[in-house]
Structures are given as C-alpha cells and as structure tokens.
Measured scan of single mutants.
Amino acid sequence: DFYRCHTCNTTDRNAICVNCIKKCHQGHDVEFIRHDRFFCDCGAGT
C-alpha cells in the first residue's frame, strides 16, 4: 500500500510508504493509494 503526500506535492510518478509517513511525513495531508505504477525508494523495505 502506498500514499501520496499533498503537503509535499508528490506526483503521479512517485509515492510514499507507511514508513515514510512515520519518519518524514507525519501530520501531513496524505492520500491512500493501494497500487499504481510507482515504488518507494526510501530503503525501508516496504
């Protein structure tokens, strides 16, 4: 499962994972996106 962060203006080409929300995007306006054509390269392994 992935998310888009409207606060940081993520686009259709990138998304964030749950670990990104916990570490970098906590309290931001995020939108849940189940699956799409992207991956998270944060290195958290999710």
Rank of each mutant, 00 (worst) to 15 (best):
13 R>K: 09
7 T>A: 03
26 Q>H: 14
18 V>L: 13
13 R>V: 11
9 N>C: 10
38 F>T: 10
3 Y>K: 01
11 T>L: 08
34 R>D: 15
19 N>I: 13
11 T>K: 10
36 D>I: 04
37 R>S: 12
38 F>V: 13
13 R>D: 09
23 K>N: 10
38 F>L: 12
38 F>I: 10
19 N>Q: 15
8 C>I: 00
11 T>M: 04
19 N>E: 12
40 C>P: 04
25 H>Y: 00
36 D>R: 09
15 A>D: 02
9 N>T: 10
9 N>V: 12
39 F>I: 06
38 F>D: 09
36 D>S: 10
1 D>C: 00
14 N>V: 10
20 C>F: 00
43 G>H: 11
29 D>W: 02
28 H>G: 02
30 V>L: 08
22 K>P: 03
38 F>K: 13
23 K>M: 03
22 K>Q: 15
45 G>W: 05
42 C>P: 01
42 C>F: 01
18 V>S: 15
46 T>G: 04
18 V>A: 12
31 E>V: 08
3 Y>F: 15
20 C>D: 03
28 H>C: 03
9 N>I: 09
9 N>P: 11
15 A>K: 05
20 C>I: 00
25 H>W: 00
2 F>P: 08
16 I>W: 11
40 C>N: 07
27 G>A: 06
11 T>F: 04
13 R>S: 14
43 G>E: 12
17 C>N: 01
8 C>H: 00
37 R>D: 11
31 E>M: 03
33 I>F: 07
13 R>Y: 04
13 R>M: 14
6 H>F: 11
45 G>P: 12
36 D>E: 10
27 G>M: 03
5 C>Y: 01
34 R>V: 06
34 R>S: 09
5 C>H: 02
12 D>E: 11
10 T>H: 11
5 C>A: 00
39 F>G: 14
46 T>C: 06
24 C>N: 07
2 F>M: 10
26 Q>G: 09
6 H>D: 02
17 C>A: 03
37 R>E: 15
7 T>P: 00
44 A>N: 06
36 D>F: 06
44 A>C: 05
35 H>I: 07
32 F>A: 13
31 E>A: 08
30 V>R: 02
14 N>A: 05
14 N>S: 07
19 N>G: 13
43 G>I: 06
22 K>W: 09
8 C>W: 01
22 K>Y: 06
2 F>N: 06
28 H>N: 01
39 F>D: 13
44 A>K: 12
38 F>M: 12
14 N>T: 09
45 G>N: 05
45 G>I: 04
27 G>S: 07
32 F>W: 12
20 C>H: 01
14 N>C: 11
27 G>Y: 00
44 A>E: 09
17 C>L: 01
30 V>C: 07
5 C>L: 00
11 T>E: 09
37 R>Q: 15
1 D>E: 14
6 H>Q: 07
10 T>N: 12
22 K>T: 08
1 D>S: 14
5 C>R: 02
7 T>L: 03
24 C>H: 11
2 F>T: 13
12 D>F: 08
5 C>E: 03
4 R>P: 00
6 H>S: 10
12 D>T: 11
30 V>S: 06
32 F>E: 11
18 V>M: 12
43 G>A: 08
8 C>Y: 01
38 F>Q: 12
7 T>W: 00
33 I>Y: 05
37 R>Y: 03
12 D>M: 10
39 F>N: 14
36 D>K: 09
17 C>Q: 01
41 D>G: 08
24 C>L: 14
29 D>S: 09
40 C>G: 02
10 T>Q: 08
10 T>C: 07
40 C>D: 05
32 F>I: 15
29 D>Y: 03
5 C>G: 03
41 D>T: 07
11 T>N: 11
28 H>S: 01
29 D>Q: 14
40 C>R: 03
32 F>Q: 10
1 D>W: 02
44 A>F: 11
13 R>H: 12
37 R>C: 11
37 R>L: 10
19 N>C: 04
30 V>W: 07
16 I>S: 05
36 D>G: 12
18 V>P: 11
18 V>K: 09
39 F>E: 15
41 D>L: 12
18 V>T: 14
3 Y>C: 06
20 C>V: 00
10 T>A: 11
23 K>P: 02
5 C>K: 05
27 G>F: 04
15 A>S: 11
6 H>E: 01
11 T>G: 14
24 C>M: 12
13 R>A: 14
46 T>I: 13
37 R>K: 15
42 C>I: 02
41 D>A: 09
10 T>D: 09
33 I>V: 11
4 R>T: 13
26 Q>W: 06
12 D>V: 14
9 N>D: 10
2 F>L: 10
45 G>L: 10
7 T>G: 02
31 E>H: 01
21 I>F: 08
10 T>M: 15
35 H>S: 13
8 C>K: 00
42 C>S: 01
8 C>V: 00
20 C>Y: 00
22 K>R: 11
42 C>E: 03
24 C>F: 09
